[in-house]
């Protein structure tokens, strides 16, 4: 069940590169796990560490305090590639709770929302404005579906209505689907006798 998400105020980290794929977010060789915990150590691993495992001092993700910067401002087509839910698990375990981009991959969006990690798509002008002021706290409010920098005008964003309600109310999606089991069984009877 996802953590409920209502509102978050935090500074952001800017990773302006476009097409940040899921192999960057968590490389394939760290997927040999049977748990969803502790994946933050592998988040952006090859961006943060040399091949001998020593940290890259210049890497921005090694220079920030993740507890202070819980919003990721990422370039276009964020999290393209694989369906691995390890991507939002790793980002959340690292400390992020939301990503803002001008385009976010479909499967990642669906995975993220199921884990209480908010994917927010904004237009380029809004993105540029946020990136230019990344040291100012940003408020992401799911209730009003707006994102706001300091006292600037809030900007509306949209989240799929059902996922939004689930996050606000802490609804358990699997439980919701299970409540449809009588309909599912009736469907199967029709289908399998047809």
């Amino acid at each position: 069940m996802p953590d409920p998400f209502k509102s978050l105020t935090s500074k952001a980290v800017v990773l302006s590169q476009s097409n940040i794929d899921t192999d960057q977010i968590i490389p394939g060789r760290f997927l040999s796990t049977t748990s969803r915990e502790g994946l933050g150590s592998w988040a952006f691993y090859d961006w943060r560490y040399e091949s001998d495992g020593s940290p890259k001092p210049e890497a921005i993700l090694n220079r920030i305090d993740p507890r202070e910067r819980r919003i990721l401002l990422a370039g276009k087509n964020f999290a393209c590639g694989s369906s691995r839910e390890h991507a939002p698990w790793a980002l959340m375990d690292y400390g992020f709770r939301a990503v803002v981009s001008t385009e976010i991959a479909d499967i990642f969006t669906s995975n993220a929302l199921k884990n209480g990690f908010l994917p927010i798509v904004v237009d380029q002008a809004t993105w540029d404005d946020l990136a230019a002021h990344a040291d100012q706290p940003i408020t992401v409010d799911l209730e009003t579906s707006t994102i706001q920098r300091g006292n600037a005008e809030p900007v509306a964003f949209s989240v799929e209505s059902f996922a939004r309600q689930c996050l606000l109310d802490g609804v358990d999606t699997l439980g919701w689907l299970q409540a449809r089991l009588p309909d599912i069984e009736a469907f199967e009877r029709r289908k399998e006798t047809a």
Partner: peptide, 29 residues
């Protein structure tokens, strides 16, 4: 994510995340 492969047969085939794998295991939907 490469589940789309099966679409070559005229199936509707797509990749899902692990939470959804759980949904299908438990409900087939």
């Amino acid at each position: 994510s490469h589940t789309a492969t099966h679409g070559a047969f005229g199936a509707l085939a797509f990749g899902i995340g692990t939470s959804e794998v759980g949904h299908v295991l438990a409900t087939q939907c």
